[in-house]
Amino acid sequence: MIPFFHLRPYRDGDETSLAKNADNYQIWRNVRDVFPHPYTLEDACQWIELCKSQTKPTVFAIDVEGEVIGAIGIVLQKDVFRKNAEIGYWLGEPFWGKGIVTEAVQEMVQYAFKHFDIHRLYAGVFEYNPASMRVLEKAGFHLEAILHQSVYKEDKLWNEHIYVKFREETKNPDKF
């Protein structure tokens, strides 16, 4: 059974649970290097302030019983890519394998297509993260491409798997 969770904007008081759940090497190795490791309380404070400054939220905390256990968001693209957004997420390790992220991705897809003028959502997954690939597939994304040796992480080149979902593939974009 999937634990009850909800997506919500960050708020004051989230700093401790955010830092506690984000400060994990196993999370860091699956995300971009801009995600700090170690993840400190100061990092959490800066992130929350940045997210609170958005007029139309693009990033949400994944909340279980008032605790930030992860995050999900989109990055709107610009110029000729303006009809695209990249989706990204992470989840605290104690909550892995419970179906939370799959449902969170499905909710975020609904939100993104309802609130933003985009046509395409995509996600890049490092080749050694099949769990994240399964999350996206369960959420209705499909593999579009493999970018060979395009990611440099931990002093090694890795392939990046690009998953995509188009607006017309979304059953009910007005639900969220």
Rank of each mutant, 00 (worst) to 15 (best):
Q54Y: 07
Q54M: 13
K56R: 14
K56D: 06
P57G: 00
P57D: 03
T58H: 05
T58N: 00
V59R: 11
F60G: 06
F60N: 09
A61E: 04
A61F: 05
A61N: 06
I62D: 04
I62A: 11
D63C: 06
D63L: 02
D63Q: 03
D63S: 04
V64M: 08
V64F: 08
E65F: 01
E65I: 02
E65N: 12
G66S: 14
G66I: 14
G66V: 13
G66L: 11
E67D: 14
I69S: 13
G70D: 12
G70L: 14
G70Q: 14
A71Y: 05
A71N: 12
A71V: 13
I72A: 02
I72K: 01
I72S: 05
G73K: 01
G73T: 03
G73W: 05
V75E: 15
L76W: 00
L76K: 03
L76G: 01
Q77I: 12
K78G: 09
K78D: 06
V80I: 12
V80Y: 15
V80L: 10
F81N: 10
F81T: 14
R82Q: 13
R82V: 14
R82K: 15
K83V: 12
K83H: 15
K83M: 15
N84L: 09
N84C: 09
N84W: 12
A85G: 03
A85T: 00
E86G: 03
E86R: 06
I87K: 03
I87F: 01
I87W: 00
G88N: 09
G88Y: 15
Y89G: 13
Y89T: 10
Y89V: 11
W90Q: 07
W90A: 08
L91Q: 13
L91W: 15
G92Q: 09
E93W: 04
E93Q: 11
F95C: 04
F95Y: 15
F95Q: 10
W96R: 09
W96I: 07
G97H: 10
G97Y: 12
K98E: 04
K98M: 12
G99F: 10
G99D: 09
I100A: 08
V101D: 05
V101Y: 03
V101H: 06
V101M: 14
T102P: 00
T102G: 00
E103C: 05
E103T: 09
V105A: 09
Q106R: 10
Q106M: 10
Q106W: 01
E107R: 10
E107D: 04
E107Q: 13
V109Y: 08
V109E: 01
V109R: 05
V109C: 00
Q110V: 04
Y111R: 02
A112M: 05
A112V: 00
F113K: 04
K114Y: 12
H115V: 07
H115S: 13
F116L: 01
D117C: 00
D117S: 08
D117H: 10
I118Q: 04
H119T: 09
H119V: 10
H119M: 07
H119N: 14
R120T: 10
R120D: 05
L121N: 02
L121R: 03
Y122A: 07
A123F: 13
A123Q: 13
G124H: 07
V125Y: 11
V125K: 11
V125G: 08
F126L: 15
F126A: 15
E127A: 03
E127Q: 03
Y128P: 01
Y128V: 00
